[in-house]
């Protein structure tokens, strides 16, 4: 899941519109499929599509840059004209960035094997289960915060395999990640895990340096709101 530091090549930049070539803003992302990933020197993913469209519609120059997670968060905190995405906007990090939100809404749930008999009425019913989650993910942190026993894995692939091998009872992740990673596993064809309980929503956001011009933040926020109102953000979020 971790990627080495990599800056996009000039060939990609040449293919972008004029304001994108100005590269006023550097937009950091970490390898986090299906939202953001770098593949064959090109960035892709649902969040990449949304943020690219956002800057294009706002007519602000930008370039994407893949960086390890911790560094991208730190750089966006300290360097002007930089942003990092997608970040969950939360009370703890509210003061550290200027925000454009939401660039999407995540629904997180508990997934179990198709033949599992687990039935949950409330989240607390899952306290008896062994839950797997991505290490350091918002879902892992959320569940641990409420006293759940969470077995963290370094990659989502590992979670899928552990669920398949019944080493965990349930996998806590968001809907899109569940779909994406399950599709990568041949053994799951026709046997996809089922969502047994949705437990939270979170607002995926663009977190920018606090010195970012207020006018640009306002322009991006208005553009996001317009994209939600005209339905284009939802279409991009659905991968269409």
């Amino acid at each position: 899941m971790k990627t080495a530091l990599r800056v996009l090549g000039s060939s990609l930049l040449l293919s972008l519109p004029a304001y994108a070539q100005q590269a006023s803003y550097t937009l950091y992302f970490a390898d986090n499929p299906p939202f953001t990933l770098a593949e064959n020197g090109k960035e892709k993913g649902v969040a990449i599509d949304i943020v690219g469209k956002l800057f294009e519609r706002a007519k602000l120059g930008y370039k994407f840059q893949s960086l390890p997670l911790a560094r991208s968060m730190e750089d966006a905190k300290s360097k002007p004209l930089t942003c990092v995405f997608p970040v969950q906007r939360a009370q703890r990090n509210e003061a550290e960035y200027a925000w454009v939100s939401p660039i999407f809404v995540a629904n997180s749930g508990l997934f179990v094997n198709k033949d599992s008999t687990v039935a949950l009425t409330t989240l607390s019913d899952a306290k008896k289960l062994k839950i797997g989650a991505l290490r350091g993910s918002g879902d892992a942190e959320y569940l641990k915060g409420f006293g759940f026993s969470v077995e963290e894995a370094n990659t989502q692939d590992q979670n899928v395999k552990k669920l398949l091998g019944k080493q965990i009872d349930a996998w806590a992740t968001d809907v899109l990640s569940a779909k994406y990673f399950v599709e990568q596993v041949d053994a799951y064809k026709g046997q996809a895990p089922r969502a047994v309980y949705t437990f939270r929503k979170s607002l995926g956001s663009l977190a920018c340096n606090t010195k970012m011009p207020k006018a640009d933040i306002a322009k991006l926020q208005k553009t996001v709101d317009d994209m939600i109102k005209d339905g284009s953000l939802q279409k991009l979020a659905a991968g269409s």
Binding site: M73, V84, F104, A133, D139, A195, S202, G204
Partner: peptide
């Protein structure tokens, strides 16, 4: 995704069906 340097997982606009 990230929360203070942590990953946040997820994306979807539709609510899951329950068992």
């Amino acid at each position: 995704m990230i929360r203070n340097g942590k990953r946040l997982a997820g994306l979807c606009f539709s609510l899951l069906a329950f068992a």
